[in-house]
């Protein structure tokens, strides 16, 4: 049974690359374009890992992670945040919100796959 990963990013191209890369590696992928969309798409389904952008319309990544960490069914789900640079302040807030793993954008698909496979193998 392959593991399911959720990618949350407002950039369609990022979602696309991440999805192609993850599916290629054998994961199932659910994608969402912002925090709000992601929360509705969680919908009780099993998610093994969440990859989320920080800056998004409607609901940003930090708020989204806080919601995830407050949700009884998802509070222990690992979250990798995508950040454009080492914005320490944001990183700190993200850490407090519960995201412990970070990938700096722009990233190579294999970097992302490497990070993902440390947390969840397909």
């Amino acid at each position: 049974m392959s593991k399911t990963i959720m990618i949350v990013d407002d950039s369609a191209s990022v979602r696309q690359v991440v999805t192609i890369a993850l599916k290629g590696a054998g994961y199932d992928v659910v994608d969402a374009c912002d925090g709000k969309d992601a929360l509705t798409k969680l919908d009780g389904r099993k998610i093994h890992l969440i990859i989320s952008d920080v800056n998004m319309p409607n609901m940003d990544g930090i708020t989204f992670v806080k919601q995830v960490k407050a949700h009884p069914s998802y509070k222990f789900t690992p979250v990798i945040m995508l950040t454009t640079e080492s914005a320490t302040d944001k990183k700190q807030r993200g850490q407090e919100a519960g995201a412990k793993a970070w990938i700096v954008k722009p990233f190579q698909p294999q970097q992302m796959l490497g990070a993902v496979s440390k947390l969840v193998l397909p």
Binding site: P78, G98, K100, L119
Partner: peptide, 10 residues
């Protein structure tokens, strides 16, 4: 574990 990491995955 509470931070979402699973040592077995490493």
């Amino acid at each position: 574990l509470r931070n979402g990491f699973d040592p077995l995955s490493f």
